[in-house]
Design a protein around this nucleic acid. Sequence first.
RNA 1: GGGCCUAUAGCUCAGUUGGUUAGAGCGCACGCCUGAUAAGCGUGAGGUCAGUAGUUCAAGUCUACUUAGGCCCA
Length: 1053
Amino acid sequence: MFKELTDKIQYSQIEKEILKFWEEQKIFEQSISSREGKPKFTFYEGPPTANGRPGIHHVMARTLKDAICRYKTMSGYQVHRKAGWDTHGLPVEIEVEKQIGIKHKDDILKYGVEKFNEECKKSVWKYKVDWEKMTREMGYWVDLEKPYVTFQNEYIESIWWALKKFFDAGMIYRGYKIQPYCPRCETPLSSHEVALGYKDVKDPSAYVKMKLKDETNTYFLVWTTTPWTLISNVALAVHPEVEYVKVELLKTEGEQSTPTGEFLILAKARLEVLKEKYTIIEEYKGKQLSEKKYERLFSYHQTKENGWYVVEADFVTTADGSGIVHMAPAYGEDDYQVCRKYGLPTIHPVNKSGEFGDDVPEFKGKFVKDADNDILQNLKTRNLLYKKEQYLHSYPHCWRCSSPLLYFARDSWYISNTKYAQRMRELNKQINWIPPEVGAGRFGNWLEENKDWALSRDRYWGTPLPIWVCEKCGKQECIGSIKELEEKANSKLKTENWKLDLHKPFVDKLTFTCECSGTMKRTPELIDVWFDSGAMPFAQWHYPFENKEIFENAYPADFISEGIDQTRGWFYTLHAIGTFLFDKPAYKNVLVNELILDKQGQKMSKSKKNTVDPFMLIEKYGADATRWYLVSNSPVWKPTLFDEEGIADVQRKFFSTLLNTYSFFALYANIDNFNPNEKQIPLQERPEIDRWILSHLNSLIGDYKTYMNTYDITKATRIVTDFTLDLLSNWYVRRNRRRFWKSEKGNDKTAAYQTLYYCLETITKLIAPIAPFTSEKVYQYLTNGKNSVHLTFFPEAIATKDDFHLQAKMDKAIRIVSIVRAMRMKSNLKVRQPLQKILVPVLHEIEKKSIQSMEETILEEINVKKIEYVSTDSPIVSKKAKPNFRTLGQKYGKKVQEIAAKVKELTSQEITTLQKEGEYNIQVNGTTYTIIKEDIEILHEDVKGWLVETDGIITVALDTTLTTELVNEGLAREFVNRIQNMRKDAGFEVTDRIKIYYSTTEKLTQAIILMKEYIAKETLASDISNTFHSGEFSLKEEINGEQCEIGIERVKI
RNA sequence: GGGCCUAUAGCUCAGUUGGUUAGAGCGCACGCCUGAUAAGCGUGAGGUCAGUAGUUCAAGUCUACUUAGGCCCA
């Protein structure tokens, strides 16, 4: 028996049942174990942080991951899926700070790092329950039992192993990182915090003169909005390709301008900043200025390194300033990077409160911003200030105390990514990015501008940087495993009662003796959490300490998928670490999904209160509808405008149509005891319409796989939807209802069942990756059992020779039907009123045959008795030719318009000649052109004496004559229609036999008597009596204007 | 300031290598059908394909610029 769906479908209820089934039967586990020995498809799960509530965008990302993994499983791959959790980092610390009421970072020391980290460890799991609930309810299959967790000792140990590799290769060094810093709170701010506090402020904008060493009375004109950084100036930067000029300033008195003998150098495009007249003396490209020396403005500091010369930098622009940029590497990221490249010194005379220190006696104790004017005054007295203005710009302020932030150099550890950036770029070319522009554009660009990775963080909760530094001689040593650490720090371990925890503060207690007899202590920093997640390919397996083989067989990943925000995050760190350690990309295919915006296209945020709760959606519409909506609505790599209505639509249109189709099948399959396992009727013995739908189904399977193989899930869902709604439900099922409900059995009926069954079964499989629940349910209904669709394999697409012709034929039939419907509409002739015939002009015998083979379908659909054909050569058909620009344009180029105009004017007769002879000569402006068959398309416009309609390709003429017979038949149909409605209203079974009693006008009575046999057959009536009797159910009706009283009752057999 | 993406019906989206009537769904109006029925079908209204210039016999499609929006970076 097939389960009949009688009640309204409760999608979320079905999903709960399926979840139970999956868990009891361990279907997920089986979907992996049943593929043992099959080729592997490797997937990496990007670890989410479980200290935030999951949102709708997580459902999106996880749907994509799940869909691809399920698809590959059903395609015969073995797909392991290990869950992961990202557990370290600042967000966790901030959450805990809030929780225990800490305002300053230093308070953590007072609170106790051990206690604090203990809290962090707990806090990480704050929303774990929500995450697991979401993962489960949305049907995301991933192994939550054995996840990798970044705070585990084993995970950290693998990271240490990797860091040691970097360290031993000389890829880790100490440098400065320029960070936004609040001098009042005395703490650096994260970029997220900086974004909170931009304000428009006025700052001094000064043009300063810096004297060239080798040229007399010649100065570089330099612009700055932070005069206090001039004390730390070490170089000037120019753009190598920008035009610069040397000008002599002129003194103007009245009309007279005289040279002053003072020369300035600046960008040609910025000459407008000069306040007096000038003469251009010399022009050069920026690169010609390179390495020219100039005199220092301030000489408070002695340095080992050389400085104070011109360097080249691409970031210099001529949008404002003078085109010459002053470099203070301690106070600007760009400055720092460039200066590092040139080996320039770093001068940092400012203390942690933002005041100048002892080494700058003149401004000692002054807050740097307050010193701006003093410094400019100093320069002015030395005649080194060219001019001073006010400059309005947007500048970051502390979101807590609104002090202006300073950009400060802080000690930091770096990884020298730039040393192998070229290799990263090469390997990137091997990665298949979906969409490609993210890989070539956003990611490629990032790699082009690659900078060294600032690895360290001055925080508490994270993976400690495993570098120990000797207090005495400064020697650095990197520890690459727990064993190594324990051996080194052996004596200490025993006394400290060491419990294995690689976090602060425990690791910091472990010290050991240097070769020089000094004490080696760990450098206090942690590493960037992005290194944690980027290390997951090997760290999730505790490689190389364990699972060597597993890791080696699972690198690189075949597939990863995350949001676009991961481009410079996880996608980058995976690539950077993978390239260095294994000289391979970490992933072969990466599917990037864009943001989910609200209905208005606004970004979703908690503050705007426009977020959507995924749990509510799943409960209300079911996970499947939500998943299907998210991937089918718009390509996943474009921003999705989220509209809840859309989910309701998907459910109503797609899912209920599919279930409705199944439900139709089940109803009749049960009546007929259809057994799907009985012998299949050979394809060539099935009716044309069966072969037609199966041929479409085959195309669908092939296209679906093509799309899924190229990760275009959106297109895959769309073609499945189109097939299910338009072809299967609205045409195949509708057209074939009669075959299912007719009482006699036989090959035709069996073929119908087998065809529909196969369509349903196949669709069920195709939707399984995206709609795993509904798919599972329908599959179980169909197979009447406890098998899971997720353990099955996709069917092969087998194209047959006549596929194309079949599809084209049916397409033509559907066109004819729709033309006739339009004509009936216009002539006010109901479909229930039978008509005598239609006339179709055909080009040749082949076209005629092809329509003839569809005749039955067409006639039934439009309720017409027969189709007649007329040759287009017949004088009653008038023809028009439509020029084919594709062929004509190629042949005649510019002449095409004139020729086309002539072609449109061709008469029926001329076209007939062309058709017969294969070519026809036309004259245009005295030139003869030969038009061949391919150059035109023939349209039939009219058939003399008939009601005619055309859609441009097919023309149909309709005979609207109504004979008495036709009218009677029409009345009988109306009568049948009323009886059928009554049967249903009375609640009779589809198979019940009935008796009909009626009384009506003479006209209708005649019609009923004449059509008695037909009526009886249609309504399963054993008797039709023209004396009224109310029976079990009765009513009064008007049928085409005739009053009528009808009663029906069931007959007991 | 730089990079990438987007702009087609009231809304959400299709639109193949350029080819002459730019499509679908939803919504709206009207009608139809009905033993799949809390479905279904048809017809209609609704488009300067963001703008400008160019390439071409021919541009929604290719190029440049402009405008607006989005994301990322500075």
